[in-house]
Amino acid sequence: MDPYVKQGYLVRDDQWGGDLGLREQKAIPHTLFKGNDYWFCMATDLEGARLAIHVYDSKGKLAENDSWQKGRFACARVLAPATGTYYVIVEVTNSPKERTTWAMVYGYK
């Protein structure tokens, strides 16, 4: 069940969200700290929609160590190699509707 929490990740009690069109992306800047291990997860409540989430560094280079996507959920993991600004890129890759609402949370340890 709760694999990340069991692994010691603290899930921030807050969320980021909005709505996106198909193949529309959004960047969420976030200062990550070297030494921390992060999981960013996003979801939608729209059946049939598919999402993607990936993390890039300030130069636009893919920075994540792991990622997965399943149905209405997607997650990406980053072990920040340096402290600085990273960009969490969220995207709707498939949806039965024109706009898809989504929310993102993250955890760290």
Binding site: Y4, R72, M104
Partner: peptide
């Protein structure tokens, strides 16, 4: 809701993301 997904989601396969993007 969002926290719950964090807790229960089971990993699956994802499309490979580009290794570099133009921010």
């Amino acid at each position: 809701f969002a926290t719950a997904l964090f807790l229960v989601a089971i990993p699956g396969f994802a499309e490979a993301p580009p290794s570099h993007i133009d921010l």
